[in-house]
């Protein structure tokens, strides 16, 4: 560390909250009717972050494999729920949730463990101070890729039903008939992370790197960490999206090479 970490006092936070009053005042003056939502959201952010801060402090002090594992599992289950909540067209009967959660668990789990044991190497390797933030970043990005990929595939298969069935009636295998749309869905799922990698440092300073710099870490060291994270994110997202898209494609067909759009349901967002 080359810089100095500047600790915030509760007075500092109180001063920052004056800006909230400004936002609330604007809402009243312009008749936006958002004062209440703004207040509730500010309260939620304070309470939720305080609680997670306490939980993380506890977890970090315990360094217990069991509790770290449980926290990781809870994060994965919540991420799976988030994937399904974002989809306006999904598989019936909880299949969207199961597929998304399994993909998050496998891809996020493999890459996080790989990063902990080969690159970051804390002692012990499951030290929650490293494991949980790493996993959190993986999940946050991968869930976008999975959600976009699964939704794109479902919507495209529905839209292209006639073209796909035209091939099925000619005796083409379902795998061949849906291949172009699987590819399209994979592409859609991977574009956000590719864009993030391209824009990093030019248009946006990634949050983790900014955080490290604020905490006094030398920028060149922070950058190394960020590059590692970007590579890990690209790996997790492609692995997760691939698994989720292929599983969705499988679920939307059956052993008699049919297209099973009856297994889809649309929910207005």
């Amino acid at each position: 560390m080359t810089g100095v970490y500047v600790q915030l006092s509760y007075i500092d936070l109180a001063i920052a909250s004056v800006l909230l009053l400004l936002a609330g005042g604007l809402s009243v003056a312009m008749n936006l009717g958002l004062e209440k939502s703004l207040g509730v959201a500010a309260l939620r952010t304070t309470v939720q972050l305080t609680l997670i801060g306490l939980v993380l402090k506890m977890l970090f002090e315990m360094v217990s494999p069991l509790w770290t594992g449980l926290a990781a599992l809870a994060m994965i289950l919540l991420a799976g729920r988030e994937v399904t909540a974002r989809q306006s067209i999904k598989l019936r009967g909880g299949w969207s949730y199961s597929i998304a959660t399994s993909a998050l668990l496998t891809a996020g789990g493999i890459v996080t463990i790989l990063a902990l044991t080969t690159a970051v190497r804390p002692e012990p390797w499951y030290d929650p101070r490293f494991a949980l933030p790493l996993l959190g970043m993986m999940l946050g990005n991968t869930l976008t890729g999975i959600s976009v990929g699964m939704e794109r595939l479902s919507a495209t298969l529905k839209r292209e039903k006639d073209a796909i069935e035209a091939r099925l009636v000619l005796g083409h295998a379902r795998r061949d008939a849906v291949k172009p749309y699987v590819r399209e869905a994979m592409r859609a799922g991977l574009i956000p992370i590719i864009n993030a990698m391209s824009a990093a440092g030019l248009i946006s300073l990634p949050g983790m790197m900014t955080g490290q710099i604020l905490a006094g870490v030398d920028p060149t060291e922070a950058v190394k960490y960020q590059i590692l994270i970007m590579f890990l994110l690209a790996g997790t997202t492609s692995l997760g999206a691939l698994m989720a898209v292929l599983a969705t494609a499988k679920r939307l067909g059956d052993e008699r090479d049919r297209l099973r759009l009856d297994r889809l349901k649309e929910t207005p967002r």
Partner: peptide, 20 residues
Amino acid sequence: MSAPDWRRQVMYVPAHTGWW
């Protein structure tokens, strides 16, 4: 037989077909 084998021999031509 596999479904593709069946469909190649018992061929359905819908009123409005699709194009890929």
